[in-house]
Every structure is written in C-alpha cells, then in structure tokens.
C-alpha cells in the first residue's frame, strides 16, 4: 500500500498550513456558500433551490425529518452526490470564491479540501488503525516520518491517540463503535481539509460515545468549517452555532441555533423543534 509514482512535494503554502494545523494558531477558516442549489435522484427533486452560507470556524447543523433532503444537500457540497448513478445537481456551491461545480475544478481536489464523516463508522476493514488514517496522506505521496507524524496528529485531533497509540497495528474494525467513528474523523482530517461534513455521525452510537463526538466537534471547529446533519435535535442544540431547518427538499429557515430552537420565524420550524412532527 504505497503510492510510488507521486512526485508531489509540499508547496510553501502547504507547509505553512501544516504548521498552523500542528500548532495552536487558529487557521483562517473558509466559507461554503450554496447558491440556488438543486439536486435530483432520477426524477425525484430531493433538494429544491437552497441558498445557504456555512460560516468559517462555526458548526452548522442541518435538521429536518427523514427524507427532507438534508443528507443529499450535504453530499452535494463535496460532490459525493454524483457518485450515485442517475443523479443531477444544479446551482452553485462556492468554497470561498471558487465554484466547485465549474468544469475547471477537479473533483478529487474538492473532496480533499472538504472531508466527510459518514453515518455508520466505516473504517477500511482490511487495514490497521494506522493504515486507516494513513490511507489519505499516502495517496498524495506522504511517507516515512512525515506520515507517522501526520497520523499521530490526526489521531490526537480526533481525541483517539491515547486510546490506540499502543495498538496502531491492530485492525481498525476491532475498535468500539465510538472509537471507530473517531478513527473515521481522524481519517477525514488526515488529508488536512478546510471543511468537514458529518452525516449523522453519532446516530449509530451509544449516548456516551455521542457526547464524545459532540465534544470533539466543538474542538474541531477552531480549525475547520463544520457542517453536521442530524435528526437529533438535542444534538443540534448542543453542538451547533447555526441551525438550518429543511422540509421536503426546501430550506425553511436558518439562523443562530438559539433562535431556531427558541423563537423561530416559521411556524413549521416551531412545530418541528417542539416535537409536533417528524
């Protein structure tokens, strides 16, 4: 499992970024903006003309009943939606000023800049803990001491290092569910993205592990722009700065989390957050 051909050397910018990530300096975050974003599965219009900004170094939660299009919206941001055959996206996604769906943009670069954590913990089953985290950096030719350093840093950031540092060579699927999910978070941030997307990251976990993930999200936002999809309203209320409410593919309302949960503008939001439906 090595990438032998790559001749990619770090640019000064990358070195700077690496320094910033390693140290305590807060990196300047990046903004993601959706402009009139629509998404389809075959004929089904799953996301309908959404305009929404995700602020740098903030956690934005997307809530809504199942099937409301929140996961689809999330998958449009790093262009994973197009991996499903028969799907289509219209409108724009901007990372700072860069349109991610423009022809000049390489989809792999998009995904490297925007990491993703999935609903079910999905470490590569044949790989050790170390190799799971190393898989991403290895793709771009990182190896040797740099690689070990990167793996350690990612595992520390994911608050997993102390638990696994003595068994890095054991299989990743041997960990508990909560540890596996933190391993996946470590894997996602190992390629040093700017934005981290989380698709119901705690829905398959027990309450204690869920809390740890939420604490971790709070720590991670100092370095990343974070978007988290959840159907768990307590989680959204606890872990996010901004909350967006979706219904039937439409964005109903977005604003500061406290406002959405206490005095939302829209009556449908009010009914949803007070548990009257969904």
């Amino acid at each position: 499992m090595t990438v032998s051909l790559s001749t990619h050397a770090e640019t000064p910018l990358e070195q700077k970024r690496r320094f910033e990530h390693g140290g305590t300096t807060m990196a300047a975050g990046h903004r993601v903006s959706l402009k009139n974003l629509s998404a389809w599965y075959e004929d089904q219009h799953a996301v309908k003309g959404v305009d929404l900004d995700f602020e740098p170094n903030k956690v934005t939660a997307i809530i809504g009943p199942s099937g409301c299009g929140k996961s689809t919206l999330l998958r449009c941001i790093n262009r994973m939606h197009e991996e499903i055959p028969g799907t289509r996206v219209e409108g724009e996604v901007l990372l700072d000023d860069q349109a991610l769906y423009s022809d000049a943009v390489d989809v792999t670069a998009v995904r490297r800049a925007i990491g993703m954590v999935f609903q079910k913990p999905n470490p590569f089953p044949t790989m050790s803990i170390f190799d799971n985290v190393a898989a991403g950096p290895r793709l771009s030719g990182t190896k040797g001491g740099d690689l070990r350093e990167r793996v350690e840093r990612s595992l520390r950031s994911a608050a997993l290092w102390d638990e696994v540092k003595d068994r890095l060579n054991q299989p990743g699927i041997g960990l508990s569910g909560g540890q596996q999910q933190r391993l996946c978070i470590a894997r996602a941030i190992s390629v040093e993205p700017e934005v981290v997307l989380m698709d119901e990251p705690a829905s398959a976990l027990d309450p204690a592990s869920t809390l740890r993930i939420e604490e971790l999200v709070e720590e991670l936002k100092t370095r990343y722009t974070i978007v988290i999809v959840t159907h768990n309203m307590q989680q959204a209320a606890r872990a996010s700065d901004t909350t967006a409410f979706m219904l039937d593919g439409e964005l109903i309302e977005a604003g500061p989390t406290e406002k959405i949960f206490t005095k939302p503008d829209d009556e449908r939001t009010e009914r949803y957050v007070s548990g009257k439906f969904g």
């Binding site: 790093n78 991996e83 999935f118 793709l139």
Partner: peptide
C-alpha cells in the same frame, strides 16, 4: 460496501486509488 468506496472517494482518491484502497 458502498460505504468503503465512498470513504475512499471522500478522501480525494482518484478512481483507481479508490479501487486500490
């Protein structure tokens, strides 16, 4: 599982790298 393939792609793997990973 589609999960594993998507995990690799989400790391910024090319198609071939996804196959290999």
């Amino acid at each position: 599982p589609a999960d594993h393939k998507e995990a690799a792609l989400a790391l910024g793997a090319t198609r071939w790298e996804m196959i290999r990973t």
